[in-house]
Design a protein around this nucleic acid. Structure first.
Lengths: 200, 200, 200, 200
DNA sequence: GATGAATGAGCATTCATTCAT
DNA sequence: TATGAATGAATGCTCATTCAT
């Protein structure tokens, strides 16, 4: 019995995994359900046993990936380090994720944007949660007076996402040019000096 | 004769203008050639007299818009002000563009991303030019020793684009929440302090 | 052993009963095997243990219902009353059936028609038997010289079915408008006396 | 110009004509748009230039056919003959139609029934008009006291339709058995005089 | 026998593109 | 040049049927 539940669970995640790859490679509109099914090793119809429709599959794929990211963020939040060190760790965490799962970056980049337009009804809780987690760290820094209070943490969290997403994408699309270390250093420099209060 | 060439030119730009609006509103895949044609006041077939296909129309639309942005950037580059002031002016320039032509933001956001996937053969000169212009200002700052030399200007220009694009999009999608002034202030703060050399 | 055979028999009829309701409600093509299975309280696959396929289920459902109708007709045939009284009783019998089991009318109406098209190979013995029983009464009337001999009993039986089926359907679909009593009276009048007023 | 409008009109009717044949042969659900298109000699997509969807095509087909029938009924209504003669003429008119356009009978039989279930939103004005026309003749007969006043003309019109439709169908499906003349005679006899022999 | 997860054939519909006018 | 009617390829989704358990 347990084995069967396990098997089912496996199939669900196999489809999700396949969807992530296909969406990353082709984008939502060019991705065919049959592509996903073939990559997952199931029949087309089977996808519909686990997901309501293509759109639902997109949302579930996005959420799975964002949950993965949020988990990483939460881990860092819990650590007993300074807000500045958390920001630094977060930045590195993002690039490590990009290195391990490059298609995560593509799905986030492309499909998150879709959500602004085509999934307006879809609340996108996971991305909201992501922004909330980032803004919490910024607030923490503001409370301990290392980050300036004039900065709106929500806008800053969005800026943080924008800078990271774009540079991760840069690396994923053209890996040869810059090393992740180099990118990480530049970005950390900009964000930390940018966020940090003037020592005057 | 001149009038006719003018007329033709007009039709070309009318289609381009219509395409920008339709792509912005619906995204490339959901945009229909017939939507563009109707908005431009021409027949469907006429679009194909000026553009090779839908794909070509997308590229030309993107280039037209990026040229608009690059023009703004170039203007600021030419001004006789410090690199820091140029960066500040650039940021404001971007947000003013977003205020005046919100669909520019959407086209850049959505269709630039398409280009990573579907236009790999397409060189995207305009975006490269944009990044080059930004990086020139950063280099200028590095030369006059107001920006630190350790920062790779190309990576920084990409970060600059990422932060601006994401925050412009945030504003375009949900105008109610934050004013452009507030967003501009936060972003300028992060970028300028981030870029600027330690005064120690 | 008997109990098990009984159980099996029960399951067979439970599926048939469910099929009748689902076919009546949705029509053959829109009816799903899973709908039937759910209503019968069995698994989808179980339906195929008792019926060859959906088509076979339709035929068996139709036959079960026609057998019900034919039983009613036979009962009336056996009664020791005049042919005219039998016709009258038959008409009432039909409307009572419609009142008690409205879905019988729908299955006969819709699925009998399907049979003309899709079951040409299927002989439709039950409907033939129905027509034969009706024509027997007409012949009986012709023999006792209350019905005119010029009338072909087989055509008349078909006319009889047509008039009853259409008016039953009228009542089932829009119950509010006319009472079964009123319909029964008009139809009995037409069948027995015709439209024309008695010249007496 | 006129020629083009004519051509377009032709294409519309060619599709309608093809649809009638395909619906008659296979029924709505088994009929494929590509069947209709092929028979009409157009591309699949062309069907959608003239009809909103398959459902709309069905309704338009049905209405075209019913209009044809209603026209025939109206012609007879206008004639300067007695109600009894009109009823007789109507019956013959129906069978002639069945002889000339057998698929008309099938479309009416099968698709009218669909309309009871699946097109409840669809008002079916043409069929209502048909029933109204028939009931007018019956009322006329009641006013001139050749038909009995106790009969509800609306129920009678429905009965009239039921008897004719069923017998037309009988003939269309198995042409060999009975001649239309024989069917016409029996049906006229029943409708006008009823089954019962004149007691004179 | 009974189950229900898995299968995959089948079809309506859209829309970029063409081409006769 | 300009038109827009016509084309037909392409695909998401459903559901009858099978079969391993």
């Amino acid at each position: 019995m347990k084995a069967m539940a396990e098997k089912k669970r496996n199939k669900y995640f196999r489809i999700l995994e396949a969807a992530a790859r296909v969406f990353a490679e082709k984008g939502f509109h060019k991705a065919k359900i049959s592509d996903v099914a073939r990559l997952a090793g199931v029949a087309d119809g089977t996808v519909y046993l686990y997901f309501k429709n293509k759109h639902d599959l997109l949302i579930k794929t996005f959420e799975e990936i964002m949950e993965h990211v949020n988990e990483m963020v939460r881990e860092i939040c819990k650590e007993d380090i300074s807000p500045e060190e958390k920001i630094k760790a977060l930045i590195n965490g993002h690039y490590e994720l990009a290195k391990e799962h490059p298609h995560i970056v593509e799905v986030i980049t492309f499909e998150l944007r879709q959500s602004y337009k085509f999934m307006k009804e879809y609340e996108n809780k996971k991305f909201k949660e992501y922004l909330r987690l980032i803004s919490l760290i910024i607030k923490e820094g503001q409370n301990s007076e290392v980050f300036p209070k004039e900065i709106n943490p929500y806008i800053a969290s969005r800026a943080f996402f924008g800078i990271l997403n774009e540079t991760m994408l840069q690396w994923v699309v053209s890996k040869e040019k810059y090393s992740l270390d180099e990118i990480s250093e530049v970005v950390s420099r900009i964000i930390l000096k940018g966020l940090t209060k003037n020592q005057s």
